[in-house]
Amino acid sequence: MIALFLRDLKLSVRAGGGALIGVLFFMTVVAVIPFGVGPDLNLLSRIGPAILWIGALLACLLGLDRLFQAEREDGSLDVMLMQETPLVLTVLVKCLAHWTASGLPLVIASPLLGLFMNMNEVAIGATMLTLLVGTPAITFIGAVGAAVAVALPRGGLLVSILVLPLAIPVLIFGVSAAYAAVEDPAPFLPPFLILIAITLFFAVIGPLAAAAALRSSSD
């Protein structure tokens, strides 16, 4: 399983700098926002955590559709389906590798973008923490979409359409935890713990459903 994790990491680094593209997209999305809403620093610092979260959500979806499609196209998926190793475990490891290669760089890049948005230290820290905890959930949900659309030649857009509504809770609790850390009356811990719960929940449901979808679309 470690071999699979390392292989997927290597692939995402070599195949056209997958991680870098995600971070670039994230930066571009965040950088475009001030042009839309105006350069008012107070406003930007207020909506900053939300913008970072939306940017990260969209960037996480990039490349998700290739998660299983690339394996299917070169025949590797057939070999993986035949192994004694439970498919759920294979899917889980692939998700973790995908997150490490494309989600983690977003988390690391988020403080820099937080500075652009004129957020204070607490807000930046809180946003980074919530992204760290919440983005894996997006990958796990995305794995279901990717597995469902694995046989479709142009599944990319469809994956995003299928995944985004399901990812709304992650966005809500991520953003509200980030805001709770800054604004006094609201407590930080409840939304943050719910965010962790959602991630753990999808860490189980996502690979299970994705494995079932991969099995039923093999032929």
């Binding site: 470690i2 071999a3 699979l4 292989r7 692939l11 196209e73 070169d74 025949g75 004694e84």
Partner: peptide, 28 residues
Amino acid sequence: ESSHYLGHRNAMKRELTVGENLVFWQDF
């Protein structure tokens, strides 16, 4: 689980070296 399947497609990644591909399959 007790068989090898060699289909039309090679189940190898173009981006990895030949050695890396084989080491991966051996481990996996």
